[in-house]
Design a protein around this nucleic acid. Structure first.
Length: 137
DNA sequence: GCCAACGTTGGC
DNA sequence: GCCAACGTTGGC
């Protein structure tokens, strides 16, 4: 299984909205690196849902339910999206400040390239975030 | 609100 | 193919 992190401004699309929707098509990605990560996703992969700008914290765990397919919102270009569903919220959201000071999370892409909207996360990092969040799947 | 970092575009 | 200019993102 692979682990990922998807970022969204809560103003645009929040965890709360995801829970309400029950499922979402992660459309609108227009960055090649992020797109390639979407393409590498498999059904069942786990994902951290992160709020950028407002909150700046990982707030929930999601699960990929449909692998990459053409993004219906893309009028031109070779873009794709995946579908995912919320699994559960983090008991204690893990803030960026905490991630930056945690020894085991220094190497997270979130720390090194904060602008990438879809990022790979290692199993160790994923488990560490869950540990800090006081949450088990 | 500011600005650094990054990606993209276009002139040469 | 290089690089300056520009737009966007997101932390602070």
């Amino acid at each position: 299984m692979n682990y990922w992190l998807a970022k969204s401004e809560p103003v645009t699309y929040s965890w709360k909205q995801l829970v309400k929707d029950g499922k979402t098509a992660w459309t609108g990605v227009r960055n090649y690196q992020a797109r390639n990560h979407l393409r590498a996703m498999k059904v069942g992969d786990r994902m951290l849902f992160y709020h950028s700008n407002e909150g700046r914290n990982a707030v929930g765990i999601a699960k990929v339910v449909k692998a990459a397919y053409p993004d219906p919102t893309a009028k031109e270009g070779d873009w794709c999206c995946v579908d995912f569903v919320p699994v559960k919220p983090l008991t204690k959201p893990v803030g960026l400040a905490m991630i930056k000071t945690d020894e085991l999370l220094q190497e997270m892409v979130l720390v090194k390239n904060s602008r990438l909207s879809v990022q790979p996360v290692t199993e160790k990092q994923f488990n560490r975030v869950l540990e800090l969040a006081g949450t088990r799947i």
